[in-house]
Design a protein around this nucleic acid. Sequence first.
DNA 1: AATGAATGAGGGTTCATTCAT
DNA 2: TATGAATGAACCCTCATTCAT
Lengths: 205, 205, 205, 205
Amino acid sequence: MNVTASESAEPARAPERSAADTRRRLLASGTQLFASKGLQKTTTVDIARGAGVAAGTYYLHFKDKHELFREIVLAAFDDLRERLRHAGSHAGADPVAVVRARMQELLAFAEENRAVVSVLFGRDHGAEGLAEEVFDLNVPAIEAGLRRRLGAQTTLDPVVTAQALAASWARVVAWWVEDPDRAPRERVVDTLVELHPFSRRPEHG
Amino acid sequence: MNVTASESAEPARAPERSAADTRRRLLASGTQLFASKGLQKTTTVDIARGAGVAAGTYYLHFKDKHELFREIVLAAFDDLRERLRHAGSHAGADPVAVVRARMQELLAFAEENRAVVSVLFGRDHGAEGLAEEVFDLNVPAIEAGLRRRLGAQTTLDPVVTAQALAASWARVVAWWVEDPDRAPRERVVDTLVELHPFSRRPEHG
Amino acid sequence: MNVTASESAEPARAPERSAADTRRRLLASGTQLFASKGLQKTTTVDIARGAGVAAGTYYLHFKDKHELFREIVLAAFDDLRERLRHAGSHAGADPVAVVRARMQELLAFAEENRAVVSVLFGRDHGAEGLAEEVFDLNVPAIEAGLRRRLGAQTTLDPVVTAQALAASWARVVAWWVEDPDRAPRERVVDTLVELHPFSRRPEHG
Amino acid sequence: MNVTASESAEPARAPERSAADTRRRLLASGTQLFASKGLQKTTTVDIARGAGVAAGTYYLHFKDKHELFREIVLAAFDDLRERLRHAGSHAGADPVAVVRARMQELLAFAEENRAVVSVLFGRDHGAEGLAEEVFDLNVPAIEAGLRRRLGAQTTLDPVVTAQALAASWARVVAWWVEDPDRAPRERVVDTLVELHPFSRRPEHG
DNA sequence: AATGAATGAGGGTTCATTCAT
DNA sequence: TATGAATGAACCCTCATTCAT
């Protein structure tokens, strides 16, 4: 990943104004701007300026305005998905515990990546549907989990439920991230867990 | 204005290419386009063309590109809100029955106003937040209802729950309206009702 | 010109909403608007509205936007010219007395026709040069007067002097009319008279 | 930046199609067009074309249509004011000599900057009052000069006189610049000097 | 890799003028 | 005469993208 001329003399330092670094700074600048103004009101020139480079430099790293957005969204989703998977697999066999672990992880992620979460889940700032599409990719997984657990004994339609859950998580997390003082983190987790169908007491006694 | 039943004295027809009619056609054209391409990709020229009038005519009826959008959103929300209120007030005292009546009304509205629902609840098409803002206006009402019913005996935070519910309804309705064959209407209603906290069996036997 | 149903009972009154009246009102509305916003920022629709008629009515009375302006300017100049001629011819043979009489008349006219004076002499509001052209038509007359009186004995070029005088009168009158409290009318007259070359004491004794 | 006399080390030429150069060409093009057609009839596209660049390039250098105009007017007035001040301060103590020096400088300036003078003093081409406003800024200085010299012994009101003089200079210079053959430059100077109140022989003997 | 000036298509908006009623 | 909705050309301005250096 790095360093053109690292022999041994320089223990760690390198001309870290390298291409990779510029790319990183463009990503950071873009994330910031997309989170605050949305895709459509953010210009490539703004992004470049925010990264401290000239306008044309942007196009050495990304083929057009949308590629940077795509990159941010895809990387963030991959990261988040990985964290959620991991959180779930460590929670034991109790489905409610898994849900809780995942909600906790979701809010932790949100707290650490506020700008990114705004881009992913915030009300559209002209995102052209990418974030939404990627988001939809995860709905089937939710649906599968529901099917597995709920079986046939409820009136809950798994597809509809998956849509509902995904939307409520996205909304709550985006809302909370805007201002984490709106509610204590644990309260949010508790509520999301409680709202989940798995928390529902068995149909009969 | 209501020519349909005119006596006979009138020569024949009124200027039926009246301003009000053009305005209506612009609204229809705009709704269609906003639903399919979003606010930002829709041009005033498109809207005018869709209404069968010249570009400048748009501005005789709406002061700028956003006024038409505002008009659609505000009128639709007013209409919907009224229908929901009415549905609720006819459902008796059982809170679950109220929820069910409202979900039914919501889906009926969606079926009758597919394009409008896309604009209201669809994934942002560059809506500049108006639909979202208006939507938020309704969250407090949901929250108040929750507070009244849930009391202090649950772990559900009313604010968080309101966000979650509003988001899930919006998403489900937008998703369903895209293609009503995705699920039978009653199935959707049942699911939404079941997911609502009021359907939850009381905490203690 | 008028009256659909005037029998005889009404001695003098007539539906003075006749064509001539509409025309007059358009002229008045235009004068007002040209004076306050200038030719270019005034729209024909504004003029019509100001006259209490529909947009299209304007074109029944004036062939285009400029004809109304032309009318105002030409009529006002004719009126002013006539008044100045008359004032001069009543002032006797003393050239300075003639100048004084004319300056007095000019300021009287200005006071009575503030809006019109703004249009005629005010700083261009996008007047497309008509007022200026018409104004120039009067410079030769001033020049002729100077030639007659000054003869060859001065260093004053009559053409240059005529330009200078015309411009100073126009400017002073427009400036004064904006707010007549800026200087007492007689003071303005005295100054203009004093500045006129005829007030200059003879070259030699 | 000043390439003209570069040694030899430099490969050959700098990007002489530099921003500063383009900016200069836009200013020149704008001055030309404003002088001939006025602010309002000049389009930014015209200006760009006149400068040999694309339409959008205009906005890299000026934020809107008026900024270029402002720039021209302000720079020209600054320049002119400086030259007049300098001319006056070199003319000795005789007030008439000062006036003469300034009138000479004014006409020299006009001859060297015909287009700019048209913009500054020409009959309004829809200038939106900027030139006029800036012009007015100079009237108080004229007024102060008059007050100092004239004292209380005349009937001349300094404010009115200042308006009259400023207007006559502006008009004469604009008129003369349109076609300098209209009068020999010295003749114009002589006339303006003679018309100035300072040239007036003392009130008594 | 980087620069940054330049490009030019395209969108929103205005308004003088027309014309069917 | 009057109405007033409609027209459509034209203008200002933005910004994603290119390219010579």
